[in-house]
Write a protein that binds this DNA or RNA. Structure first.
Length: 303
DNA sequence: TCCTTATCCAGCAGCTTCGC
DNA sequence: GCGAAGCTGCTGGATAAGGA
């Protein structure tokens, strides 16, 4: 049972918008691409946990804290024991030597098992502080079928792409019945995670202002800024995808709100932000139908 | 397929408000 | 007071939806 779904986080969505609408420096762009790749991998893993039929609670994307130390958990499965998954969307060939991970070119990369060990230890301590003494089984999941690790010892807590299905089947057949105490634990973890996300230290957004950002509407499917108005729909000249104007404008408005939370939503500002593709009057109507209007004559804005 | 009805948008004129 | 900016209301046309 999915107890806490994964949501694309605010930082990733904002970075996605900035990447599409301005020239990010190479460091920030790489940071965004890595974060997006990681998120895509986690979503791929969700497809496996969603199919589980056993009596378990699946909690995705937890940001927890113990002893002033913050740790992130990609996927947590509470069943007969607690299964912690650290998902990695690595691609390419790597090798393992002296407890370290390397590219084939012999460049060392961060050992994901160390990350797992740290968060597993903090999670165990957090459970103990909440009065739970549960066994935790942590694994690093390499989700991408294009990944290969040479010289991997048999005892590493790792799941390779070809092992995930079998591991899930094993979890599915474990005889177990959920109880209220464990649901209460899950509630506490979700509540703490929500609070920690509010004070999240994991935000690395670049500085930007309205003038830096390219306005316009893009295609919902391929993200290209190549949409043309056709009746009450916007058509993409790159991929051919069509979207209703109202839906596309609202999507663009929410992107504006995410990028500029302190800016007021006015007809003229949104008309400009949409790149003038949709008329100001049409924009006004869409805002009127979907937001609350303040001031009825001049200086009307919407919230 | 055709007809009717509803909905939505564009264009235009006019009103209100602000800044000079 | 005047011009500019921003908004409203009215009208006509286009399009979508529903029913016969």
């Amino acid at each position: 049972m999915l107890f806490k779904p994964r949501t694309e986080d605010h930082e990733l969505l904002t970075l996605g918008s900035l990447n599409a609408r301005m020239a990010l420096d190479s460091g920030k762009r790489q940071y965004y691409l890595n974060k997006k790749k990681g998120y895509d991998g986690e979503v791929m893993f969700d497809a496996y946990t969603e199919k589980l039929e056993c009596e378990c609670l699946v909690l995705n994307d937890l940001l927890l804290k113990f002893n002033n130390k913050t740790f992130q958990i990609d996927s947590l499965l509470i069943a007969e024991r607690v299964h912690q998954f650290e998902v990695k969307n690595f691609t390419g060939d790597y090798f393992y030597e002296d407890k370290k991970f390397y590219f084939l070119s012999k460049t060392e990369v961060e050992n994901p098992i160390n990350q797992l060990t740290r968060s597993e230890s903090l999670l165990r301590q957090l459970f103990a502080s909440l009065g739970f003494n549960l066994p935790i089984e942590g694994r690093v999941v390499f989700i991408n079928p294009d990944f290969y690790l040479y010289q991997a010892p048999l005892d590493l807590p790792i799941l390779f792409p070809t092992q995930i299905n079998r591991h899930m089947q094993k979890l599915n057949t474990a005889p177990y019945r959920m109880n209220g105490k464990l649901k209460a634990l899950a509630d506490k973890l979700v509540a703490q995670s929500a609070q920690n996300y509010l004070e999240s230290p994991y935000t690395q957004l670049p500085r930007y202002c309205y003038e830096d950002i390219k306005p316009g509407m893009n295609c919902m499917k391929c993200q290209a800024f190549s949409v043309v108005l056709s009746g009450k729909k916007l058509g993409c000249t790159v991929c051919g995808f069509e979207e209703k104007v109202e839906s596309a404008v609202l999507r663009t408005v929410f992107e504006f709100k995410r990028l500029f939370p302190s800016e007021k939503l006015t007809t003229s500002r949104i008309y400009e932000w949409c790149g003038g593709i949709v008329s100001g009057k049409w924009v006004h109507g869409i805002l009127e139908r979907n937001f609350k209007k303040f001031n009825s004559n001049r200086w009307t804005y919407f919230e």
